Lab assay of single mutants.
Amino acid sequence: TEVDLHLGDITIKLKDVSEEIVKRAKELFKNGWSAEFVKKWIEEAVK
């Protein structure tokens, strides 16, 4: 499945990412993480 994760003005296309990771990524962004950091976190999380 593909998900578009909207973080501010940046959209990250996610492939084969669990709902849990998407939820967590949104929380991290809301908590002040930059979109770049969230993207890196996701990449690490799906390895």
Rank of each mutant, 00 (worst) to 15 (best):
K13D: 06
I42A: 03
E43W: 13
L7H: 03
V46D: 03
N31R: 13
K30D: 13
E19V: 10
K15V: 14
A45V: 11
V3R: 07
I21T: 04
D9N: 13
F29Q: 01
V46Q: 09
H6G: 04
D4E: 15
D4T: 14
V38L: 04
L28A: 02
D9H: 14
G8L: 04
V3K: 07
I10W: 06
I21N: 01
K13A: 10
F37W: 15
K39D: 03
N31S: 13
D4V: 15
L7P: 01
D4K: 07
A25E: 00
W33Q: 08
L28G: 03
T11R: 06
L28M: 13
F37H: 11
V17W: 05
K40N: 11
H6M: 11
V38W: 02
I10L: 11
W33H: 14
V22H: 04
T11H: 09
T11E: 05
V17R: 01
D16Y: 09
V17A: 05
V22M: 10
A45T: 12
W33T: 04
V38P: 00
A25S: 02
D9L: 11
W33K: 14
R24M: 13
E36Q: 11
K23Q: 13
T1R: 12
A35D: 02
H6F: 07
R24V: 08
K47M: 14
K23M: 15
K30W: 06
D16M: 06
K23C: 10
F37G: 09
E2R: 08
K13T: 13
V22D: 00
A35G: 05
A25I: 04
F29R: 02
K30Q: 14
E43Q: 11
F37P: 01
K15G: 07
K47P: 04
K23L: 15
H6T: 14
E19Y: 10
K39M: 15
I21G: 00
K23H: 10
V17Y: 05
A25H: 00
V38H: 00
K23N: 12
L5A: 02
S18H: 09
I10A: 06
K30L: 14
D9A: 11
L5R: 02
L5T: 02
A45D: 01
K15Y: 15
D4Y: 12
V22A: 06
V46S: 09
G8F: 03
E2I: 14
V38F: 02
K23Y: 15
I10T: 11
R24K: 14
E36P: 05
K26R: 15
